[in-house]
Structures are given as C-alpha cells and as structure tokens.
Amino acid sequence: MAAPQPINVEDLNIYYGDFLAVEGVDVQIRPRSVTALIGPSGCGKSTFLRTLNRMHEVIPGAYAKGKVEINGENIYDSRVDPVNVRRRVGMVFQKANPFPTMSIRDNVLAGVKLNNRRISRSAADDLAERALKGANLWNEVKDRLDKPGMGLSGGQQQRLCIARTIAVQPEVVLMDEPCSALDPISTLAIEDLIHELKQEYTIVIVTHNMQQASRVSDRTGFFNIAGTGKPGHLIEIDDTDTIFTNPANKETEDYISGRFG
C-alpha cells in the first residue's frame, strides 16, 4: 500500500446557488490522524466536510470551486467520478441511518451489495466480521446478524454505520457530528472507537462539543462566520493542545472560552 499522503485543500470556495457559503479554505489534513472541526452553527464546517467527498453535490444548488487533493489527485478534476471519490472517502452522519430494509449483516455489506458486486459467502462473512470488529460492535451483535439493523440502540446503530463505512475500505472517514444524537455512554464508545480507527484511517470530525474535540482529535480547526449572509472562514488550524490552550487568533480564544457560539 502506498504511503498515505495528506489531504491538500487549496483555495476552496463553496456556494449554494449564488450564495458564497464558505470562502478560501487552504488546509492540509494529516493522514492517519484525527482532525476536528469546531465553530458556531452555520459557520460552514459541515458544508466544508461534505466537499471532501463531494457529498455536497447531493444538495440542490450546492457546488465547490477550488482544489481538494487526495493522494495527489484533485477530486474536482473534471475526469474524476464522484462515485469513486466516495468509495475512498467514507462518511458517517449526524443521525444514525442504517437501511431499514436490511439486516445487521446486510447493512455492513451494503457498500458491496448496493453496488451489485459479487462476493462469495465466506468472503462476505469475513468482511462483515472484520468491519463489525473494527467498529467494536461484533461482540454485541454476532448472535443476531440477521435481525434488522433498526432494532439496535442509537449508539449501536451509529457504530453499525461506522462498520458499514469501513467495510468499503476507504482511506478517509468523515464524521458529521456523529455523537450529537447519542447519550454519554454511547458517545464514549464512539470516541474510543475513533481512537482506534485513526491507526488505519484519516479521520475528519465535525463536532459542536469542544470537550469532544479536545478528547479525540490531534488537530483542531476553527471555523467562524462574520455575520448572517457572510461566508464562513477557516480561522485557524493547529495542534489540538495549542488551539485549546494558546490559540493564535482572538476569535478562537473567544469561542473556546465560551464568549460566544
């Protein structure tokens, strides 16, 4: 396997129709580490996250201009197929969204099954087991793999969604406030899992919870917005310790210390 390269974002502007939502993001995201994005609501951090695997294109009117390089390849190159981008940059959403028509096993194998790829029974079993183990869910569900995925608890559903994502074997996993709908115990389980996952994957996580950012991430980026109708900016990004103890920017300090947001 090739040595992992950072994700390079250069001068990225994101629009909703005529409205410039996020302006001029330049950032390098380190491989095999956790990068947290924090900031007040509506600052564009989730929007930015979605542009890392072109999921923003699902939203009518949304488009991005600029460059996002993953493994040295610009995903906004006209010859790049967004479907292939998403196979290499997975995403976990705010609300756990297992497929209601599928069993736990089929949910994990969804990336294979939905793509009509042929896979032998034993290879599928292996893949499901590895992905569920990777998501720390195997022991809880190994006896009921054929039960519907919707029958799990909220935290288990979210880990099922993570298992589903890593079963596709991406390089990068994007997480959009993955714990915001969960109770503290489930949140802890997911945070532990994020620690393990960074051995293998580049993780970018958007969170509202600054404690969470400080617990799970190696680096933290702060997004802010000057006012309603103005575009969001990446104010600064640095090692998490630095951001939370000695931020370079006044805005960051105000936000961290709870003066607004």
Binding site: N53, M55, V58, V83, N84, V85, R86, R87, R88, G90, M91, F93, K95, N97, P98, F99, P100, T101, A110, G111, K113, L114, N115, N116, C161, R164, T165, V168
Partner: peptide, 27 residues
C-alpha cells in the same frame, strides 16, 4: 423515504441509479 438513506448510500460510493433502485424503491 428519508433523505438520510439516500445520503448513506451515496456516501458508500453507490451510483445514483443503484441508490434509487436498491434503497429508495426498496424502502
């Protein structure tokens, strides 16, 4: 059919038509 499910499918690298057939119509 919740938008969530379509997004979940797209995020797994499933093309739009397969998402419609296997997720939206199936649900």
């Amino acid at each position: 059919v919740p938008m969530d499910l379509r997004e979940a499918s797209y995020a797994l690298g499933v093309p739009k038509w397969l998402t419609i057939v296997k997720v939206v119509l199936r649900t």
